[in-house]
């Protein structure tokens, strides 16, 4: 944080205010205010445009799982986000459970285990995962990965089927929530890794050397000095990754074979996420249909906003502690 304040210590010369200074300072402030306005506009426009369908809705928006917002003559407008919200959270949870331990492992590998000269290059390799567009992940998942996962799913259903989560029968296409969750896990891996790497490199050298000097092995040094110091960063990174997984659209829309049910069976096809539902339904939607999708988007916006703000809060608290 010292670098932040240093720029303010250099005080510009006082004197009569020049026109250029005034214009430049105000346009800089204007750009900052514009960003706040955009964010407020996102929330405001979504609320305004979702009102028309929400007032026409005969079902309960939060507890219903139906989706028929475009009523024909003599029909009622009924739609709700219960199944969609469940699917969104389920997918993000699968991704988080799979990705977080691996990401911590990768971060440890890059910071403490990899040969010094290779470390930067290997870190770059993990960053490449973040550069691949989600639509390409979707294509790869749909055409290649789901077939490769089939034997694993059959194995899991046979031997772990007694756990309700993995109950059979296995979907014959492999286009299940677990497949989507695995692809989401790969997509959020670089986000969590980047955050964990950041905190692991900031662990004070004195802490680490003290542990080693007491005769700790490398793992004991990591367990006693690195992990306690890095925990808030890892939690913050995991939550940022979760925010990404909640809002990810294309990979889920392409891989999952959707249905609007609340089902915890991740090996069977079914479930759907808010984002994917919007992308799939929008091209055919009109009138209240569009408005209902905007209402669903508002729910997604609310969820991700809450998760992201919590994540930023956790990360910024860590900064206060370390200084």
């Amino acid at each position: 944080m010292t670098t932040t304040d240093s720029s303010e210590t250099a005080v510009a010369p006082r004197g009569k205010r020049r026109l250029g200074d005034l214009v430049f300072a105000n346009s800089a402030r204007g750009a900052g205010l514009l960003i706040l306005a955009i964010l407020a506009g996102v929330a405001l426009f979504l609320i305004v445009q979702s009102l028309s369908s929400l007032t026409a809705n005969e079902g309960n928006f939060f507890t219903s799982s139906e989706w028929s917002p475009e009523a024909g003559p003599g029909e009622e407008v009924r739609f709700g986000v219960a199944a969609l919200a469940f699917g969104t959270v389920l997918g993000a949870a699968i991704a988080l459970v799979l990705a977080t331990p691996v990401a911590v492992g990768i971060a440890l590998f890059i910071v403490y285990y990899a040969p010094r000269r290779l470390a930067a290059l290997l870190g770059y390799l993990v960053d490449l995962l973040a550069a691949i567009p989600s639509v390409v992940y979707g294509l790869w998942g749909l055409v290649y990965l789901v077939d490769q996962l089939q034997p694993l799913y059959r194995f899991m259903a046979e031997y772990l089927g007694w756990i309700p989560l993995f109950a059979g029968p296995v979907s014959s296409t492999g286009r299940t929530m677990l497949s989507a969750g695995i692809v989401l896990a790969v997509m959020i891996l670089p986000i969590i890794t980047a955050m964990a790497r950041d905190v692991f490199t900031q662990v004070p050298q004195t802490h680490r050397e003290a542990a080693l000097a007491l005769g700790a092995t490398r793992w004991e040094m990591i367990r006693t000095a690195v992990l306690p110091f890095g925990r808030p960063g890892v939690i913050g990174g995991a939550m940022l990754g979760m925010g990404r997984a909640l809002g990810e659209t294309m990979a889920v829309a392409m891989i999952l074979s959707p249905s609007l049910v609340i089902s915890p069976n991740v090996l069977q096809s079914g479930n759907q996420t808010i984002a994917a539902h919007i992308a799939l339904q929008y091209p055919e939607a009109t009138g209240t249909g569009v408005s209902a999708l905007i209402a669903a988007g508002l729910v997604l916006f609310g969820i991700t906003l809450a998760v992201n703000m919590a994540a930023r809060f956790v990360v910024s608290r860590r900064k206060e502690f370390t200084e």
Binding site: I35, L36, I38, L39, G41, V42, F45, L46, V48, Q49, L240, G243, R244, L246, G247, E248, T249, A275, I278, A279, V290, L293, I294, G297, L300, F301, T304, L305, V307, N308, M309, A311, R312
Partner: peptide, 19 residues
Amino acid sequence: FVDVMTGIPSIVAGLFVVA
């Protein structure tokens, strides 16, 4: 809020412009 904005789902950004 710039940090928070980084986390806006891309589909929500699309819906914003639609609205």
